[in-house]
Amino acid sequence: MCKHSNSFIVLMLGSNIFLQQVLALLAKDLKTEWRTREIFTSMFVFAVLVVVVFNFAIGADTELIRQVASGVIWIALSFASVLGLQRTGQMESEEDSLQGVLLALHDRSALFIAKMLAQMLYLLVVVICTLPLCGIWFRIDFLACLGALCVAFALGMLGLSIVGTLFGMIALHTRACEVMLPMLFLPVSIPVTIAAVQATAQLIDGKRLRDIADYLVLIGIFDVVFFVLALIVFDYIVEE
């Protein structure tokens, strides 16, 4: 009984340290970002640009635009994601702070989780700012399905963040970083893109959460599988 409670306490303390490190790293990234707001601005402006350009490319047919709206939003998010990851990577390599951080860490996967959460938060802010604009330009009432939309967006953004952070760290070490990151990230994240676009499109059409359950299951499985995989391989990426 005593042995069990001891190991439980060690586990709690261990996970407490881990959690503290994750939060500390996340706070550091967010504080840096809050000072300059560089990454968020570039992501938001780029997402808006993509939406506007697609709008012009598709034409004036309101019904057609309404049908492709969810695709346009998710493309904008994917590309904004790539941009954000590239900027984050650039800033990391300029400051060369990665090695120092890794040495201080008890468990290296804390860095991955912190970066992933940071990326997800950036995407979340971009979505919160872009969706109202999309609602106005595409004449879609997002408020009607807001709850279900939150679930779909949360799962989708999580998937994009996991894969993005992993490949961001890999691309950081290559010569042609700007080329490699989209080449790695976009094909692998296709299941998320497809499922998220379909789920969002059906929600906009008026379907309920249970109707898009299989898409959400697909994204969920993708998130779980890649999260576990990322945690396993992350050590191999950062170790010297």
Binding site: L166, I170, L184, V188, I190, V233, I237
Partner: peptide
Amino acid sequence: FAAILGIIGFVDVPLIRWSVEK
């Protein structure tokens, strides 16, 4: 890094297949 991509690429196959089928 290539080894990691090699693993991820193949693990992604059933997910891509499932999503494209849907």
